[in-house]
């Protein structure tokens, strides 16, 4: 994948995040360009997920600046709900709405936020389910799906808002090994379609395959970033080398 243009979609400068006295993110700065796939790797507790959750302000930001598509979300006056409509998120534990059918999971937000009429939303939902290979699950309930199916529905749900940016928070960490592939394939397809994505994952092989840029985080800092070739195959920082030795 090559970066198609130089439009900055996500601008982060000197981002800091504390939980009480604990400093989780100490000083993070980076830009994500349109169509770019950025994969964040690093040990547990390094702040990867927190960083991702700051990008749609699921976590309040302690200090620094985050600009999503020109909207400065660190500014309290910005309508965060409007920004979130444009930023899809996929969670480790899927978080499908348990009280709603698969179809309703997909159409709820577009209809509720007046992005589409009921008919349009339904048509799009069916289309998205086809795309993730689950068109036979339209009327199923989340409890009837396997983990891999749930995660694919969750991706389809996020896509139904037609977002410009997708955030993935360890999308395969809660899956049985045999179901990891089906979810990764959907994400790869999205990458091929040119979606701007930030992915937190432990799947190093997947990172190497899909990423335009890999970020290695540790201790609340970005330790090293570059192409998969640079960071995963030829890491320079001792901390990165140490981590990759352990997981590969």
């Amino acid at each position: 994948m090559t970066v198609k243009s130089k439009n900055v979609k996500i601008h982060v400068s000197h981002l800091k995040k504390n939980f009480g006295k604990l400093e989780v993110l100490k000083d993070i700065s980076t830009d994500v360009y349109e169509g770019e796939v950025v994969v964040i790797i690093g040990p547990s507790g390094s702040g990867k997920s927190t960083f991702l959750r700051c990008l749609n302000r699921l976590e309040d930001i302690t200090d620094g600046e985050v600009i999503i598509d020109g909207n400065k979300i660190t500014d309290k006056k910005v309508d965060i709900n409007k920004v979130r409509e444009n930023v899809g998120m996929v969670f480790q534990h899927f978080n499908l709405f348990n009280n709603l059918s698969v179809l309703k999971n997909l159409t709820l937000a577009p209809v509720d936020l007046k992005k589409a009429t009921k008919e349009e939303a339904k048509e799009q939902a069916v289309h998205m389910l086809e795309k993730v290979g689950l068109s036979d699950k339209v009327s199923a309930y989340p409890s009837q799906l396997s983990g891999g199916q749930k995660q694919r529905v969750a991706i389809a749900r996020a896509l139904c808002m037609n977002p410009d940016i997708m955030l993935f928070d360890e999308p395969t960490s809660a899956l049985d090994p045999e179901m990891v592939g089906e979810v990764l394939n959907v994400i790869k397809q999205l990458a091929a379609d040119g979606m701007t994505m930030v992915i937190v994952t432990h799947e190093i092989g997947f990172a190497r395959e899909v990423a335009d840029r890999v970020i290695f985080m540790d201790g609340g800092y970005i330790v090293e970033e570059g192409t998969p070739e640079e960071v995963i195959k030829n890491p320079r920082e001792p901390r990165t080398i140490d981590f990759l030795n352990k997981v590969l």
Binding site: L58, N81, E85, V87, L96, L108, D112, A158
Partner: peptide, 23 residues
């Protein structure tokens, strides 16, 4: 109710009260 349900709804752009009501 799992906090993840709220986070998923909020991440789609649903406001707090709407999330309460629907999810």
């Amino acid at each position: 109710v799992d906090i993840g349900q709220t986070e998923a709804a909020r991440s789609l752009g649903l406001p707090y009260w709407r999330t309460m009501q629907r999810i």
